[in-house]
Amino acid sequence: MGLADRINQSARKLPTWPLYLIALAYAAYQFWLGLSGVWIEPINTLERQYGEAALILLIAGLTVTPIRMYLGINLIKFRRAIGLIAFFFLCAHLLVWALLDVQSVSRIWADIVKRPYITVGMVGFLLIVPLAVTSSNSVIRRMGPVAWRRLHQLIYPAVLLGGVHYLWLAKGFQIEPVAYFTVIVLLLVLRMKRLRQWITAPRST
């Protein structure tokens, strides 16, 4: 039995619910750090921690398919949890921004309309809302696999917008946003049909 098979076999035995607990504990711990005074600028730091967690999870969700396609490791059973937790961190990021950072309804609206990097982030978030709403088994059954899959392709533009949002808010040339953006573009390129066919096609030697 190959390594991939062994990983698949043990992954099947693992439950997904601990992922939700870990996420909640992490979010709570970050909030507590914000309260505790260890960060000089807790509002901005907490906002970034939640936003970065969301981006990392969205990227992790995008790796599930290529990992199966190219490595034969099937982690699909964790993908819903990854996506929902990403959505949870996006909500937390948005709440910290609106309630603790901007602090006023008129300024929130002005920022969404006037600041392109916020507009882009907000559009990305809105694209993800229907995906979170349609994540339960019963909705998937009701929609049917084709419609569901088509709707969930919204994740591609959404993650791309998330990457642009991060890139755009940086001052000067900063490594992290560029790295995230590059990974996102690579993961999207890996999904292109032609490339996929070319890589996985059997070759005569």
């Binding site: 600028e41 807790p42 509002i43």
Partner: peptide
């Protein structure tokens, strides 16, 4: 005069904690 990417009308004085008002 706003910075093209954010407002300059208010600021956050460092040191006011997680619920620091602008």
């Amino acid at each position: 005069v706003d910075h093209p990417r954010w407002s300059q009308a208010t600021e956050r004085l460092i040191g006011g904690g997680l619920f620091n008002a602008r």
